[in-house]
Design a protein around this nucleic acid. Structure first.
Lengths: 357, 357
DNA sequence: CCTGTGGCCGTAACCGGTTACATAGGCGGC
DNA sequence: GCCGCCTATGTAACCGGTTACGGCCACAGG
């Protein structure tokens, strides 16, 4: 800590030299002005400065104007850490995600930022990487730095993660398995899968193939369950086949190739996400199979690419999930602890040329 | 502030009831344990606790072990705000971006997170939205909360933004016009454009069209300049045509349609980004024009979609830009103010089927 | 003229950490 | 046996804000 000489009474305008942008590499960066600097320079107490700048009632209009002017001249900006410490509020929300990848991540962030900035909150990111100890360390580092947490943990092993989370903080979960005892915002994957099946059956398809997501992913799991349940309910006699995928496009391609090589007869593919569906489309096109003439294809997610390649899919409002999670959390700040809530976002079937001529 | 009664001497283990996860909605959340709680419970001073937990030398091994055990039992996690206040370090970096959109954003974040987490830093996001006043307010709110800033401002109007940025903080710019007097990490757009032109000319193309980015975007601007300069240098006599775009796929589609309707003769398209190039591909395919037989197409960015649709493009290591920006900033923390530096990331030409049979 | 009231402002305690300095033993050298 | 040093620990100041409380003054009512 810089031990500054407090001896001089009424210091002569410590840092009054304005914005001063030109960086002279030889000099250290200027110390930012503190509330004490403002108080001294305005010949008032720090209490008055604090009150004036925070818009409290008990301060004379003239005094306030003077303080505001002095603060502006010194370029004073209150120190967020100090403020957080004394008010026990940070106006920041911690976001804990499994990885920062692709369109899904950016959409989620966009939605969160939208709601957060409206309410004056900032977003502090954290990644639950592979390394578990680092993850919980990072989350611990958020204590005192955020007012609450939004946690996304689409792996099955999420329960373990949840146990390491601080109990003091309000918290909202996104895309996590249910029954965690916390507020949760989720995508209604089962209903989405049901819509896909209904659509394909209505088109007259008789042999459906499902390309599933990775085994440890809860969204993929629920989509598969939804698919099987819908088939059992709506077309008990029809053949079903489930192939294990990994959410990557290359895998959709490979699986379709294998089915064709094998000679398996099918006229519809429902993939657990768009990337795999696009891979499937690619393989079908390469094999000269007409889509949707001979095989219909449905994806899940509605990534931008899907619109572009005219893939029928289930549109998921990912930004909406992010936005709702933040809204829910902020409501929690205002209202105090409330019984856990589960909110489901409905996917919407978007019919495009992969199931329609 | 909760005014807690400090009367009782040697309080009986204030919050010793462990992790206590089960949420009883009727009860308020438990107060997190402080360093004083640990000290009291361990019958030691807070100084010793602090020293023990921070790995300082002058503390007896037995004492340290005892303190660590007590801290674990109480679930003690140091309050980040308090620590920042007294150490003047936050271990957090502010990230200021124009918007949270698409693959570019997520890749950038991924790169930043990679480097940041390696060095134990967290990322605090901020969006420079449309609303300028809100932006500078959000950035001001970062003071005392971050050790430095990474700012991306690909608009020309960036200079104004830069003036509102706090002068006290170390800072690295990404994709900003040069000559700002700050450390900068940028993409070498001109060199990328030059590679594209060289490639197309080597293929024997004689009439090139450039679909440019939005007027106020510095990347788009530099790519266009690079294109024109390369054409002037390598093929002075050949016709060039520049069409104003907006980085969206729909626009690439529209522009190609217009060129065809007009009857303009061209055999190569260089688009300022992949989305527009894909739009162009779409229009060409719709018009039954063979790619690359009749027209070659080159994009810029190498988004995942480009690989998938086999578009020749300039690969940009966006994650690398983010990663380098963070590394540079952390170096700045360690080394103190240094003369401004500009680091350029080279795009790499990836040849695919849109320029090769 | 005295007192009550309310507006405006200053003093100081507090948030939860870190750390300079003081202090208390233990021990070796003379 | 005394002095000095080293190690382990405690005391208290400090980081930069917020805010409870009390003081001072002007003014109105009795």
């Amino acid at each position: 800590m810089t031990k500054l000489a407090k001896s001089e009474p009424a210091a002569p305008e410590p840092a009054a030299n304005g914005p001063e942008v030109g960086a002279d590499p030889a000099f250290a960066r200027p110390e930012p002005a503190t509330i004490r600097d403002v108080a001294r320079s305005a010949n008032l107490s720090i209490a008055s400065v604090s009150r004036a700048l925070n818009g409290h009632a008990n301060v004379h209009p003239e005094t306030r104007a003077h303080i505001v002017a002095v603060a502006a001249k010194l370029g004073y900006v209150p120190n967020a850490a100090a403020r957080s410490l004394s008010t026990a509020r940070t106006n920041a929300i911690g976001v804990v995600l499994p990885d920062f990848h692709g369109e899904f991540f950016s959409e989620l962030m966009r939605g969160m930022d939208r709601s957060a900035s409206v309410h004056g909150y900032q977003l502090l990111m954290s990644n639950t990487h592979a390394d578990k100890s680092m993850a919980s360390q990072a989350i611990a580092a958020m204590l005192g730095r955020v007012d609450g947490l939004v946690v996304m943990a689409p792996q099955f092993a999420a329960a373990e993660l949840l146990r390491t989370l601080p109990a003091h903080l309000p918290m909202v979960l996104a895309n996590t398995s249910e029954g965690t005892g916390h507020h949760t915002i989720r995508i209604d994957n089962r209903l989405g899968a049901t819509s896909a099946v209904t659509h394909l059956l209505a088109l007259g398809c008789k042999s459906l193939v499902h390309i599933a997501g990775p085994a440890d992913n809860i969204d993929g799991h629920e989509r598969c369950e939804g698919f099987l349940a819908a088939m059992a309910a709506q077309a008990p006699g029809l053949p079903v086949r489930v192939c294990q995928g990994d959410f990557q496009d290359g895998c959709g391609d490979r699986i379709v190739r294998e089915l064709l090589d094998e000679g398996y007869a099918f006229d519809a593919i429902f993939a657990a996400n768009d990337m795999m569906a696009l891979g499937a489309l690619h393989a079908l096109r390469a094999a000269d199979i007409d889509v949707p003439g001979q095989v219909c294809v449905v994806g899940f997610d509605d990534i931008p690419l899907a619109r572009y390649l005219s893939l029928t899919t289930l549109h998921v409002d990912v930004a909406g999930v992010g936005s709702r999670a933040i809204e829910r959390l902020i409501a929690e700040f205002a209202g105090g602890a409330a019984p856990a809530t589960v909110e489901a976002i409905m996917p919407e079937l978007i019919v495009r040329n992969s199931t329609r001529a």
